[in-house]
Design a protein around this nucleic acid. Sequence first.
RNA 1: GGCGCUAUCGUCUAACGGUUAGGACGGAGCCCUCUCAAGGCUUAAAUACGGGUUCGAUUCCCGUUAGCGCUACCA
Length: 483
Amino acid sequence: MVRVRFAPSPTGYLHIGSARTFIFNWLFARHNAGTMILRIDDTDVERNTRESLDSIFEGLAWLGLDWDEFYRQSERGKLHTSLANHLVGRGLAYRDFAPARTADDGAPEAGAAGWLFNPEMRELSQGESDARAASGEPFVIRFRVPRDAGGVVTFRDAVYGEQSKSTSDIEDFALLRSSGVPTYHMASCADDIDLKITHIIRGQDHLANTFKHVLLFEAAGAPVPQFAHLPLLIAPDGAKLSKRKHGPVVSVTSYRDAGFLPEAFINFVALLGWNPKDDREHLNRDELVAAFTLAGVNKSNAVINFSEQEPFDPKAVWLNGQHIYKLPAAQLAPQLAPFLRSAGLEADEGKVLAVTPLIQERIRLLRDVVSVADFFFLEKLAPYDPAELIPQKGDRAMALRVLEKAHQLLAAVEFIHPAIESAFRAAAEELHVKAGQMFLPVRVAVCGRKNAPPLFETIEVLGREVSVQRVGEAIGKLQGTAL
RNA sequence: GGCGCUAUCGUCUAACGGUUAGGACGGAGCCCUCUCAAGGCUUAAAUACGGGUUCGAUUCCCGUUAGCGCUACCA
């Protein structure tokens, strides 16, 4: 039975890299009919925030990804400390009474002599250790890394293969802080053991920590889970993604706010560091679940390609356009409406549904609906230059002739788009203008711009009254200007 | 500094010793077309460098270089 967990620490917003880790775990769990666990790793009380927790829930809710079990590490402290104390009791960990050594206050450089552990503390007699603890002297509990000559820790990573590291390169890491609060390593392993996690799928930044974890699992007498480390997501400059440096692209909510479809986002992110081994790029959620295996995960970091001009990876945007295009209009329309409304447009449900098929293949982000379809919802068209009404190789007189003819037709014709179109094509012939010369002035009159959805469907949706009125206004504009 | 990991078009990636090094996004061009899209076709664009091993290396080994990660009483 597969049991996997996503274990974010609530310090910040839901990062795209974290979201990807969740997605990979989730896909793996669902593919294997296993259990997905969400565990909040909040042992570092000082850095946790409520907002951050909320943003994790918010992001996952948007993605529509679920989990089967939920835990909060801070509520499981007893489990962690008791395992730490158990290890002390068995001589596998020890109390260290030395003052904290941090990088800035003179800790020995990693690799330098005396870096791995403080022999004085490591070899303290049981009696003295107990006495000093009893006297209230503060201490941290450190793992006693085996120091046999030639000792090596090994494990097999599902992505990176056989891994090994000499124990002489592993320090006696802390398990419990002097405050008694467990460290990440302790809490994480104790929980992984207790929750019977079978596969640990996480960022590659934990690869080097894994040797410590293997040691801890073994010391606790627990089976060592399978590991799969994921290549990291990085910025175009090669740096890791940070909100301060790279802006909103790193936050999941900004994808939502720009109008990505959750399924498209998942599709895009799944393809970063994983591929289905065939040429498919567009995969829906079920297809991803069916195709996902750890064997398809690759080893090198993936760049999310964005810039000031293009705030989102062009491939993500393209993929989103594909997902939008494939979505039934009835499902898309309700997702479009909020973007229209927040732009101050009155987005009547029925009208949005009627407009949707006309713009579906013209938008790549949901928010594009505003710039593409605003004129459907505007009472009064935004002002445009009357010169726009003049067709190619035509002049003001031609525009006027065309518009006047259109004005008559629109008032009389049967108001369905094939009928409108054939009437217009016949009129073009009658007026001795090309179809394009006939259509352009009308398009501008009705949409207020040269680039728009197909003319006749647009007119049909707009309705007779509005269309006639707008063409009339265009005639007025043209007459009122000398061009 | 020490330890670990990685290295194919600009970007995401395929090719588990033998391919004209494939696909996708983006770029360029053409076609389709009432504009814009969408779609179709064509095209430019990559194996970091140097040594091995091999009849034959993108692929295996070593070194160099570069990037990333870990090296806390952060996670």
